[in-house]
Simulated scan of single mutants.
Amino acid sequence: MKCKHVFAIALLSVGSMKLQAQQHRAHEQQMHTMASEVQQTNVRIAILLYPDVVLQDFAGPMEVFSKAKNLSQGKYTVFTVAKDLKPVRTENGLLKMTPDYTLENMPTADYLIIPGASMPVMHALVDDKVYLDFIKRWSKKNDGHLVTVCTGAYLVAPTGAFDGKKITTHYFVADDLAEQYPKATVVKDVRFVDEGNIITSSGVTSGIDVALYLVGKQSGEKMKAMIERAMQYTYHEEEKWPVAPNGMRYRSQ
């Protein structure tokens, strides 16, 4: 009886190993199929860094694209760019990063992600001609897409790239952005707005939504859904915005 029991366990073990092998082959086949569905040989994403940038504004999209790179078997390339190659600290000095490229020597990219920061930081950036000239050059490209996250919209608006377009930004500064740049139409209660080569997203975590949206466009809904599950994140295109307490609102000085 003991031998029969051992033999039965051995059979179960072999069966389990076969099932695992079959599941592994099915998973590999699914990964290969998804990789073949990516529209481009390589989707290239540049992320702009600058001092005191909000970490979540670029970390969220970066994580989405990192998972897309795995699932597509390397068809996504993500790199960072900055004014120079000096280490950049995020808001409150939480993280120090060394950019991959400068604004002058960066490789070609399909998407340029511009994350946001506190409004004093954004106003200081707007006063720096280097950033505005760079964005003007980029926005004139026919084959590149400009993507803003949160208050990153304030770095693009002065260049005129938003004129005649629908845009969005963080809910707390949306009215101010509309007043400062009346040639653009600010849309509320959305996570992002796609106007072709200009894509804007609302507050902070909306960068995850816009990144998932871009993955869906490039690689299909199946990959997008897999990344949603992996991140335990629920994708939204529309969402009722919060209301600031006591009628508070931001106004540019």
Results as ranks from 00 to 15, higher is better:
35 A>P: 00
35 A>D: 05
36 S>C: 10
36 S>R: 14
37 E>T: 08
37 E>C: 00
38 V>W: 07
38 V>N: 00
39 Q>E: 14
40 Q>I: 06
41 T>H: 15
41 T>I: 08
41 T>F: 10
42 N>A: 13
43 V>N: 03
45 I>W: 05
45 I>P: 02
47 I>D: 03
47 I>S: 07
48 L>W: 05
48 L>S: 04
48 L>C: 06
48 L>P: 02
49 L>H: 08
50 Y>R: 07
51 P>M: 10
51 P>H: 11
51 P>N: 15
52 D>M: 12
52 D>I: 09
52 D>L: 13
52 D>F: 13
53 V>S: 03
53 V>P: 02
53 V>T: 02
54 V>T: 13
54 V>R: 05
56 Q>T: 09
57 D>K: 07
57 D>Y: 07
57 D>P: 10
58 F>W: 11
58 F>H: 08
59 A>F: 08
59 A>Y: 07
60 G>Q: 04
61 P>N: 10
62 M>Y: 10
63 E>A: 15
64 V>T: 05
65 F>W: 12
66 S>K: 11
67 K>L: 15
67 K>Q: 15
67 K>V: 13
67 K>W: 03
68 A>P: 02
69 K>A: 10
70 N>Y: 14
71 L>N: 07
71 L>F: 01
73 Q>M: 14
74 G>I: 15
74 G>S: 13
75 K>W: 12
78 V>P: 03
78 V>D: 05
78 V>K: 06
79 F>G: 09
79 F>N: 06
81 V>N: 04
82 A>S: 15
82 A>Q: 06
83 K>P: 05
84 D>R: 11
85 L>A: 10
86 K>V: 11
87 P>S: 12
88 V>M: 02
89 R>K: 11
89 R>H: 08
90 T>D: 00
90 T>M: 07
90 T>V: 06
91 E>P: 00
91 E>F: 09
91 E>Y: 10
91 E>R: 08
92 N>K: 04
92 N>P: 01
92 N>G: 01
96 K>H: 00
96 K>T: 11
97 M>R: 06
98 T>N: 11
99 P>F: 09
99 P>E: 07
100 D>I: 05
101 Y>H: 11
101 Y>Q: 01
102 T>N: 07
103 L>V: 06
104 E>F: 00
105 N>K: 09
105 N>W: 03
106 M>L: 08
106 M>K: 10
106 M>Y: 04
106 M>A: 09
108 T>R: 07
110 D>I: 01
111 Y>K: 03
112 L>C: 08
113 I>G: 03
113 I>T: 07
113 I>V: 14
114 I>M: 02
114 I>Y: 00
115 P>I: 01
115 P>T: 01
116 G>T: 01
117 A>S: 15
117 A>W: 05
118 S>E: 09
119 M>I: 04
119 M>Q: 04
120 P>L: 04
120 P>G: 02
120 P>Y: 06
122 M>D: 02
123 H>R: 15
123 H>V: 13
123 H>L: 14
124 A>Q: 14
125 L>T: 04
125 L>R: 06
125 L>Y: 06
125 L>C: 05
126 V>R: 12
127 D>W: 05
128 D>P: 07
129 K>A: 12
129 K>C: 03
130 V>S: 15
131 Y>W: 13
131 Y>S: 04
132 L>M: 13
132 L>C: 09
132 L>V: 11
133 D>K: 13
134 F>T: 11
135 I>H: 02
136 K>V: 09
138 W>N: 00
